[in-house]
Amino acid sequence: MKRAGFDNPWLPILLLLPQLSIICLFFYWPAWQALRSSFFLEDPFGFGETFVGLQNYTRLWDSPQYMKNAWFTLWFSFLVTFFSLAIALLLAVKADTVLRGARTYRTLLMWVYAVAPPVAGFIALILFNQRWGPLTEAFAQFGWLLRVRLEYFDTAFAMIVASVWKQVPVNFIFFLSGLQSIPRAVREAALIDNRSGISRFWTVTFPLLAPTGFFLLIINITYSLFDTFGMIDTILRNNPGDQPVTLVYQVYLDGFRGQDIGGSSAQSVVLMVLVLALTVFQFRLVERRIHYT
């Protein structure tokens, strides 16, 4: 807040009103609804609801389907985060060193940021087409016959490839801006001390990029959890069967299609707790980052 702020009593309330009313209506009310319904069992015909305590939560814990999807979400997030960070870091380091065509490379490597996730799924469907998909053919050369949308593991593989493709640009942009903010004096001192490029990267550049990397870690986990919905829905063509889905997709299936409001609310609350934990973790890291610099 500014020291010499205005004293007008009504104007600030008027200015805050649109934002606050939208937030109350479409944020706090639904969040409260989710929390409340997670303790109730709703009559499927809409005639009423009964308080069931934690039953909706224990039901999740006991559901093999839910636990299976939870495991899938876990290793899906891990692999997507790992590969998109690793590829982006490699590309950012190279884009930072080359002199010719640096701008062209930057543009070519970042535009995919703007591609909508369902389109990434659509492209994956073509690349992994059963009969003539270029990637199906490429892997068949190595004796791996991919059957996306039929085999659990193969579908997961296609989803990971599409997600990594879509996520590399964001990481690339952040890593590159992180690299460019390393002071020139530090780079030159490192160059004098250490002629080997690889060892210079691990002892100087990588530790200096660590704060960016921690921040991106959270961003990527959140991405794998939430922003992959459209891609997954497109690959499964609306018909998941026994194919892998993430927990967010499960919320949609149970709550919107299956009309199991109590169960899907409990799932929403689980996700909320997960996101809150991630955010607290991130804030603590950001706090620590201040001591670095």
Binding site: L25, A34, V248, V251, F256
Partner: peptide, 16 residues
């Protein structure tokens, strides 16, 4: 509101 994305409260948001 920065903490929770729309996806985690999608079903109640739809109902409202």
């Amino acid at each position: 509101t920065l903490l929770l994305p729309l996806e985690v409260r999608i079903v109640p948001s739809y109902e409202i």
